[in-house]
Design a protein around this nucleic acid. Structure first.
Lengths: 191, 191
DNA sequence: ACCCTATCTTGACATTGACAAAATCGCGAG
DNA sequence: CTCGCGATTTTGTCAATGTCAAGATAGGGT
């Protein structure tokens, strides 16, 4: 946002500033419509400053994805054990943190071997697994039920973000998501 | 693939050649991991030849999306009126024509005001609407049911394409999709 | 034989990602 | 205090890319 440097050189936390600038740029132009040099310009530093903290563009996107998966896992854990609430939290995160979400589920943009990223990813997957497991009518279908519930909320989030749903513009996505998820068997009566 | 030109200049259908080269490049490196000049190199023409047919990079991606929506609508119409089969066709198209699918649902990459694109898009939407409509238990929930069914198949396709599903590597996506869709209320007994 | 239009080439320019080397800052050792 | 050292930032540079403008070529219609 605002330039960090006052006069001469500085040693501020440029890492955070560049990350925020990247998130803002992704929000404006998508995960590929920006440039490292533009971020540096926004942060008020020279064109090669971000390279020291992130290596290259892929490294910056890896940092975005890792942070995103961490926040995502937190949000899902906060939703508790009820599958409906976890699903709503899934959509709420996608809509409320669109830049993170758009990078997270595009693995060709970042490095999947990042350690912090994979742990956060597994943490989020565990919440999805446990919450959707109790939707299954029989233990044999537990795996399919998890995939189906995950697909439902993920698909809704993607369609809403891409503007494919005609009602996307004039309706609250969270309320709409709640109504849609309720159609899935087992989510109507939580307790 | 193969260079078109034999000797000197040529007037072949470069448009098709560039489109095919673009699809191949997208299949390899995603919708953003290629360059116009690389396509021209692959097709054996000069670096600015594609510009005459597509204007710019966005124009080329618009052509890809338009052609993709046309093939998509054809595939869905071929599946008939049964919601389960339409859903399976949805996933089959996403997996079998991955480059098209990845561009189609990323509107920031192309121009949505393209006339041929919007007509094909509406044609596909109509199939989804009519086939999912008969899944609804009550007419009042028809809109929600359509959104839910669409979200389910779209989410499954996206998760499978992004490699997020752990079983993605060792199972047939079409069969898995069929099992998953069957969990949705109303799809078990088609007739 | 000639021209005309679509098609393709060539040349150029600004922007970008990446790398190397120099410059600067901040902090601890003496 | 000051000196040096590592972390950080700058500057300079290069190849690659997208886009535009101008020239060259082919093939058909007159």
């Amino acid at each position: 946002m605002r330039p960090i440097k006052q006069n001469g050189y500085h040693h501020g936390n440029l890492r955070r500033a560049v990350l925020d600038a990247a998130l803002e740029a992704i929000a404006e132009s998508g995960p590929a419509g920006w440039s490292l040099r533009e971020l540096a310009r926004r942060a008020g530093v020279s064109h090669a400053a971000p390279a020291h903290h992130f290596g290259d563009k892929t490294g910056l996107l890896t940092a975005v994805a890792a942070e995103g998966f961490g926040m995502f896992a937190d949000a899902l854990e906060r939703a508790g054990d009820d599958a409906l609430e976890v699903g709503v939290a899934y959509v709420r995160f996608a809509v409320g943190h669109r830049p993170y979400f758009e990078v997270m589920f595009r693995p060709e943009l970042y490095r999947m071997d990042d350690p912090g990223l994979t742990t956060a990813r597994e943490r989020a997957a565990r919440v999805l697994l446990t919450s959707s497991g109790r939707l299954s009518p029989a233990p044999a279908q537990e795996r399919l039920t998890t995939i189906a519930a995950w697909s439902l909320v993920h698909g809704f989030a993607c369609l809403w973000l891409s503007g494919s749903l005609p009602e996307a513009a004039r309706e609250d996505p969270e309320a709409l998501a709640r109504s849609v998820i309720r159609l899935f068997p087992g989510t109507s009566s939580p307790s």
